[in-house]
């Protein structure tokens, strides 16, 4: 036994000398992957610097619109649209219940879509004479300014800041901002979101309201509202905060989320019209007057009654 040990020692000494006294090294890591970069919706970004006031800006009276006029004189904006053969409307195709593409039929449906069709019905007598153009929240004002669309019906809150660039119809719906979180979250409102990642669409009033909240959350901006739901489901944001209408559509798609807190803003939805087309504003207001008479309730009952409870159309306010 003793001999054997000595031989072993001698051999290992020899081996050490041959190997040049280096350490043997470590086994190779076959998968040197420390963390995983999650996939993100296109253009998702951290917003450090949100400009402009949200709904809180009260420097004007946002609800007062031009008085209604339902006639279509020749040479008017509506006359040009009639010549063209279709009304071009900027809408959303990603917001469940308000403006979304029904994957089964491929058709656009929702409360906003119904309102847009009413405008077409008034011009053409045909609610289907509409060319829908899906736009993101951030594209709403540029689309109107560039003349890409005649009107925008897309959960579009009237604010004093926006009134500087475009015109709005009378208010056709009043929503309010709330918070959407996972069903197990103990967040109870916007006040509990300090330092947490909260998602909203780019250039939306919701994003500005989040940025203005105290304590300050970390605003994450995306192109479309449904991208927020994706990020919440993937655990990339802690909450989504926007109008209760949009949140209701998200909650409808996922039983593991809940809407919490009270409305902390009033979002006054209007139809956006290019600033120079005053005749169109008056015409749309006339359409909305008619819609308030019945079509509004019909559409509300179809899309929103179950989720948001009974409601009636807001009364118009003119300058």
């Amino acid at each position: 036994m003793k001999h054997r040990t000595r031989l072993g020692v001698a051999l290992s000494t020899f081996a050490l000398l041959v190997a040049g006294c280096g350490s043997p090294g470590k086994p190779v890591d076959p998968a040197p992957v420390g963390s995983v970069e999650r996939p993100q919706p296109a253009n998702a970004a951290l917003e450090n610097d949100v400009q402009g006031g949200g709904t809180a800006d009260q420097s004007c009276n946002p609800t007062a619109s031009l008085s209604p006029n339902g006639s279509i004189p020749s040479g008017s904006t509506m006359d040009e649209i009639r010549e063209r053969g279709h009304l071009s409307v900027g809408v959303d195709q990603n917001t469940f219940l308000f403006g979304f593409r029904n994957p089964t039929s491929g058709a656009l449906e929702g409360f906003d879509i119904d309102i847009a069709r009413e405008v077409a019905r008034e011009i053409f007598g045909d609610p289907n004479a509409v060319q829908f153009r899906a736009i993101t929240s951030a594209q709403r004002i540029p689309a109107l300014q560039n003349g890409d669309v005649d009107i925008v019906v897309r959960t579009f809150s009237i604010t004093c800041e926006r009134l500087e660039d475009i015109s709005f119809s009378t208010v056709y719906y009043v929503a309010g901002q709330k918070v959407l979180v996972g069903v197990n979250s103990d967040v109870e409102g916007i006040g509990d979101l300090g330092g947490k990642r909260v998602c909203a669409a780019k250039e939306s009033t919701s994003l500005k309201n989040i940025a203005a909240a105290d304590p300050a959350p970390v605003p994450i901006s995306v192109d479309d509202w449904s991208d927020c739901l994706v990020m919440l489901q993937q655990g990339q944001v802690d909450a989504v905060s926007t109008d209760d209408t949009i949140l209701a559509g998200m909650a409808e798609q996922d039983p593991t989320v809940k809407i919490v807190g009270e409305r902390f803003t009033d979002e006054l939805y209007g139809i956006g019209v290019p600033k120079e087309n005053e005749d169109m504003v008056r015409f749309v207001n006339a359409v909305l007057d008619r819609v308030r008479g019945g079509a509004w309730q019909q559409s509300y009952n179809r899309w929103l009654l179950e989720r948001l409870g009974p409601a009636s159309p807001p009364s118009p306010d003119y300058q």
Partner: peptide, 22 residues
């Protein structure tokens, strides 16, 4: 999501396409 008629399906598809292209 598409099968249930939810627009979140389109959002997931856009995210997938973004991952593919980027």
């Amino acid at each position: 999501n598409n099968r249930q008629g939810f627009p979140a399906g389109a959002a997931y598809l856009r995210e997938a396409s973004e991952l593919m292209r980027a």
